[in-house]
């Protein structure tokens, strides 16, 4: 194990940070940056709770060395929407009841968002394939699929987003 310094852009912020050759990107995000919306469910790339977007691609941060993210542009769930204005995918998840225990939710939202970027009008099979790397154990898949459909509809219509704020 060696220590070294790496740099990347995470959620739009430039960061330089000391890490080690045995640190995973997931550990760096959680333990060093305390961006705890990225979760560890299995550590083996099976569950998708650790999903982030790196250099425009959906990836499992538990299967990436921190050093491999040197020079990368990374988005975690904390980089999606904000208190004032949630992302349409986040809003749709709330409205359709797609959130239960919530542990899969950040990864699921990132997978959905990435899929909709590449394919704005997915059919049900395409949605299933898009989130096939993310497990939900509360088995709320149907609601999650509904949420993604709702978000897709809103994103493709002009007045996207919720008209009434949830309070």
């Amino acid at each position: 194990m060696s220590k070294l310094t790496i740099g990347f852009i995470i959620n739009g912020q430039k960061k330089t940070i000391e890490t080690t050759t045995s640190t995973r990107l997931l550990d760096l995000i959680r333990d060093d940056l305390h961006l705890t919306g990225t979760k560890e469910g299995c550590g083996k790339g099976e569950c998708g709770a650790c999903t982030v977007i790196m250099n425009g691609e959906l990836v499992a941060s538990c299967l990436i060395l921190a050093t491999q993210s040197d020079g990368a542009v990374i988005t975690t769930i904390e980089g999606i929407g904000d208190n004032e204005c949630l992302d349409p995918v986040q809003e749709a998840f709330i409205e359709t009841g797609a959130v239960q225990c919530g542990f899969c939710t950040p990864g699921m939202i990132l997978a959905a968002k990435k899929m909709l970027e590449e394919n704005p009008h997915p059919d049900e099979e395409e949605i299933k394939r898009g989130i096939s790397g993310n497990l939900c154990r509360c088995t709320g898949y149907q609601k999650i699929i509904d949420a993604i459909k709702l978000a897709a509809n809103r994103l493709s219509s002009k007045n996207g987003g919720r008209s009434e704020k949830d309070d």
């Binding site: 959680r30 919306g37 998840f93 009841g97 950040p106």
Partner: peptide, 18 residues
């Protein structure tokens, strides 16, 4: 709407390991 749904979709909800 679920009371903690907004925290959860934003990744703000704190689970034990967080």
């Amino acid at each position: 709407y679920k009371v903690d749904a907004q925290d959860k979709v934003m990744g703000k909800a704190k689970y034990p390991d967080d």
